[in-house]
């Protein structure tokens, strides 16, 4: 049970940390200043949520573990984020598609986590939900703007949606860790989240005049520590400084 709670905490924390790191890559590269700032803000929110969860994970680990040690001194196979958040940013539309698919999931997930039996996770959910609600609205608006925009933007956002779809299945699959956490009243029943996600995604895709990709085959493994080739690069960039200078302070 202790082991599963730690893994559950890390799955949430790693989603936030890796997505925050990916969004941070846009800093200074956004198409216009306002949107550059928007993504940096969201990256910061994700990082803040990651910190709360890493602090909790470090406490569970005990000993000399700290939030920084959790973030900077774990390797690829010890990361438990879903694969979707580690994928490359691609163009603006692709980043928006990834963000929309994840934000919508994250919004309903944290809404359910508000009634978790675990006090700490519940507190994090209460904090995070307010921020995630802003993110979800923002990324949905972008999907509509791009889908119902020009021929070019429509074509490209549809392509991104089609490409990313296979990475969404993992968000809703429940393994033993999920099941045990649900039984304990701590975790979230993902089948319920899936229903809400389906509904919202369909609604937004329709407004955006986009086609919902078909559910053929889904990637999986991230939650269990089996990652795509991309995560190593994300970690290398994020971790190299503290690993080179482990005692550095700034």
């Amino acid at each position: 049970m202790k082991e599963q709670l730690l893994e559950y905490t890390l799955r949430l924390g790693d989603n936030a940390l890796i997505l925050g790191q990916r969004l941070g890559e846009w800093c200074g590269h956004g198409p216009i200043l306002e949107q550059d700032i928007a993504l940096s803000n969201m990256a910061l929110d994700q990082l803040g949520q990651a910190r709360m969860l890493m602090q909790y994970a470090a406490e569970q680990k005990g000993g000399d573990y700290t939030e920084d040690k959790m973030a900077f001194f774990r390797d690829v196979t010890e990361y438990h984020n879903c694969l979707l958040v580690e994928l490359e940013n691609g163009d603006w539309g692709r980043t928006m598609a990834r963000q929309f698919l994840f934000d919508t999931y994250n919004y309903y997930f944290y809404t359910a986590l508000l009634s978790s039996a675990d006090e700490r996770l519940k507190e994090v959910a209460h904090k995070a939900i307010k921020e995630v609600a802003y993110h979800a609205q923002w990324s949905a608006e972008w999907i509509i703007r791009l889908g119902d925009g020009t021929e070019e933007s429509h074509r490209r956002i549809q392509e991104s949606m089609d490409d990313l779809w296979e990475w969404t299945g993992e968000l809703f699959t429940m393994d033993d860790v999920d099941k045990l956490m649900i039984e304990a009243g701590i975790g979230v029943d993902l089948s319920r989240v899936k229903e809400q996600w389906d509904q919202k995604v369909d609604q937004i895709l329709e407004l955006a005049t986009l086609k919902r990709p078909s559910d053929d085959w889904f990637q999986s493994g991230g939650k269990q520590g089996e990652h795509s080739e991309y995560l190593g690069f994300v970690l290398a960039e994020m971790q190299h400084l503290p690993r080179m200078h482990p005692e550095a302070e700034w």
Binding site: E34, I37, D45
Partner: peptide, 13 residues
């Protein structure tokens, strides 16, 4: 509203 995300996390533009 220009952007829901402004110069700091707590502000909109």
């Amino acid at each position: 509203l220009v952007s829901q995300f402004g110069s700091t996390a707590c502000k909109a533009l």
